[in-house]
Each structure stands twice: as C-alpha cells, then as structure tokens.
Amino acid sequence: MVKTKPAVDAKQTSQICPHCGVHTGKKPLSQRIHFCSHSGRGTHRDVGSSTSSLESRCRQYIHHRAEKYSLSVPVAGDGLVHSESLHRHTQ
C-alpha cells in the first residue's frame, strides 16, 4: 500500500502572520523580518514561513484523519494551531 500525504502549498506562507494568521501582503525579498500590524509581533521571515507551513500541514493532517475515520474536529477560537501552544504542549 502506498501512503500519500496531502501537499502543503508553500505559496504566500511568508505573507501570513504565524502568530494570528492574518495575510499581511507581499514583501520585497530583501525584507527579512516579518512584522504584523494586527498582532503587533515580529519574527524572521523564514521562521514565520516555516511555522505557517507546519501549522497548515497539521490542520490538513487532522482534517484528513477526521474524514477518514468519520470524526468531528472541534475548532476553538480562530482554528489555528499557534506556535506557542505547540511549544507548550511538546515540553
């Protein structure tokens, strides 16, 4: 049996705030720090992009498994898995 994983679209991941999920718009490649005026937080562009991709992959996996086993997935708040909550739960 071949196992396949849902693909994560890496497009625009550096335009999404990893803290609040707001789309902050296109930035020039020379701008290496991501700052979100909505959450007031900043992070290195590559770290923010990686975090957004990871959160997207986690959401896809959870929903994929829920569909496969006919489970309901509760969504609390904005439905995003924030990096702080991931960090707290893995320590």
Rank of each mutant, 00 (worst) to 15 (best):
T4R: 09
T4W: 02
T4D: 12
K5V: 14
A7G: 05
V8D: 00
V8R: 00
V8C: 01
V8E: 01
D9W: 06
D9N: 04
A10P: 15
A10K: 08
K11C: 03
Q12I: 13
Q12K: 15
Q12G: 08
T13N: 10
S14I: 01
S14N: 13
Q15A: 10
Q15H: 15
C17L: 05
H19K: 09
G21T: 02
V22W: 13
H23M: 09
T24S: 03
K26R: 13
K26H: 14
K27H: 03
P28L: 03
P28V: 00
L29W: 14
S30A: 12
Q31G: 00
R32F: 07
R32Y: 09
I33G: 13
H34F: 12
F35T: 01
C36E: 02
S37C: 08
S37N: 06
H38Q: 11
H38D: 13
H38P: 00
H38I: 00
S39L: 02
S39K: 00
G40R: 05
G40E: 04
R41C: 10
G42W: 02
T43W: 01
T43S: 02
R45L: 07
D46M: 10
V47W: 11
V47E: 13
G48Q: 01
G48E: 02
G48T: 00
S49D: 04
S50T: 14
T51I: 13
S52K: 05
S52D: 12
E55P: 01
E55H: 15
E55T: 13
S56L: 05
S56W: 09
R59M: 09
R59W: 04
R59I: 13
Q60L: 11
Y61C: 05
Y61Q: 11
Y61D: 11
I62H: 08
H63L: 11
H63I: 00
H64C: 10
R65L: 08
A66L: 01
E67Y: 08
E67M: 14
E67R: 14
K68W: 05
Y69D: 14
Y69P: 02
Y69G: 07
Y69N: 15
S70G: 11
L71E: 12
V73K: 02
P74N: 06
A76P: 00
A76R: 02
G77M: 01
G77N: 10
D78V: 05
G79H: 03
L80G: 05
H82C: 08
S83V: 07
E84A: 12
S85V: 13
L86W: 03
H87A: 10
R88T: 00
H89F: 11
Q91E: 12
Q91R: 08
